[in-house]
């Protein structure tokens, strides 16, 4: 049986976890919805060499890359929080 964390440790840990959750969801919201709200304006911009319209690129590829990186970044951050409070596995 591992040592059980105290109430204070649990509360601090959850507070940090919640902040990270909010940051992650804000980034998620920006790349899921917000930037595609500018799709019409971004369609006037062409990415050099590759030739994509910025609006199409973000919806078809850019946001997806952000999502993948976001999850790995989030996992690393959350693991660090768990370590910091000594509640990791």
């Amino acid at each position: 049986m591992q040592e059980q964390p105290t109430k204070e440790v649990r509360e601090e840990h959850w507070k940090k976890t919640k902040s990270l959750m909010i940051v992650a969801l804000v980034i998620w919201f920006i790349f899921s919805f917000l930037i595609h709200g500018f799709a019409l304006a971004f369609s006037e911009i062409t990415i050099p060499i590759l030739g994509f319209k910025l609006g199409y690129y973000m919806a078809g590829q850019g946001s997806l890359i952000v999502f993948v990186i976001l999850i790995f970044w989030f996992s690393a951050k959350q693991n660090a929080i768990d370590e910091e409070f000594g509640v990791s596995e």
Binding site: M21, A24, L25, W28, S63, F67, L70, I71, F74
Partner: peptide, 8 residues
């Protein structure tokens, strides 16, 4: 994008 919600 739904997978971000799953992970978080």
């Amino acid at each position: 994008g739904g997978y971000v919600l799953v992970a978080v």
